[in-house]
């Protein structure tokens, strides 16, 4: 498979991938590290998390929403790998991009203002979690895994993803917390979500183009 250079920020990069393919049998720490690295350097997952926790003031809510997201992506990460679903990585990444735009629109209270109703934000974060997990599954499937230790290696990758997510979230929550205390937050928040939405559209367009032409 031809892996274009531009995709290396998001895919498991060539050298890492070749290292893992060379591994035989159990490799808990390497897979854990790759899972964490994928999450910390995966700007699409990070942007979505920023959108999700943008207006969550209480730690309790942050934990609830992030748990739903984790539940969603763990189901499809493991299901996708074990049942050998062959979904197109670019299309899934395009949907992940749209999830960022969706979340920004929801943060703007867009559904109520434009369509006159609101969607269940918890259900949405769970459902988009399922898509993010499918994306993770395609990345893991891209590394021809050896079958003998598949389950343990996959679980290690998943644990790594959660560690990476926790690290990234800690930074996001601290920065957002500081920002919220400023008076200008209300004004900047709207602009920030507009930018977030635009980045989501860009990611979606980028991945869809890659699906068509890469």
């Amino acid at each position: 498979m031809l892996i274009p250079v531009f995709a290396t920020a998001h895919n498991l990069s060539g050298a890492n991938a070749r290292f893992v393919e060379g591994l035989d049998g159990l490799a808990v720490i390497p897979y854990m590290y790759l899972g964490a690295k994928h999450m910390v350097t995966g700007y699409d997952h990070l942007l979505y998390l920023v959108g999700v926790v943008f207006f969550l003031l209480r730690l309790k809510d942050v934990l609830l929403y992030v748990s739903l997201f984790t539940l969603g992506h763990s189901i499809t990460l493991m299901g996708g790998v074990l049942l050998e679903w062959n979904v197109n990585a670019y299309l899934i990444d395009a949907i992940i991009g749209l999830s960022v735009a969706y979340k920004a629109f929801e943060n703007m209270n867009g559904f109520k203002q434009v369509f006159g109703f609101t969607l269940n934000a918890r259900a949405a974060v769970l459902i988009f979690g399922l898509f993010h997990g499918l994306g993770l599954a395609t990345k893991l499937q891209g590394l021809s895994l050896s079958a003998d230790s598949l389950v343990i290696n996959m679980l290690s990758f998943n644990v790594g993803v959660e560690i990476g997510q926790a690290l990234a979230l800690a930074c996001i929550v601290v920065i957002l917390g500081q920002w919220r205390q400023r008076n200008s937050f209300q004004k900047q928040a709207f602009a920030a979500n507009t930018v977030l939405m635009s980045l989501g559209f860009m990611l979606a367009g980028y991945q869809f183009s890659a699906y068509l032409w890469a």
């Binding site: 207006f55 969550l56 003031l57 809510d61 735009a101 920004a104 629109f105 943060n107 703007m108 209270n109 867009g110 109520k112 203002q113 434009v114 609101t118 269940n120 934000a121 209300q186 928040a189 709207f190 979500n193 507009t194 930018v195 939405m197 635009s198 980045l199 989501g200 559209f201 860009m202 367009g205």
Partner: peptide, 25 residues
Amino acid sequence: TSQIVVLQTNKRKVLLASSLAFILA
């Protein structure tokens, strides 16, 4: 969802911002 703080916006503002986001992208 009401327990989540959402921005005080109106339809025009949201549509404008969404179009802007889309055009920029």
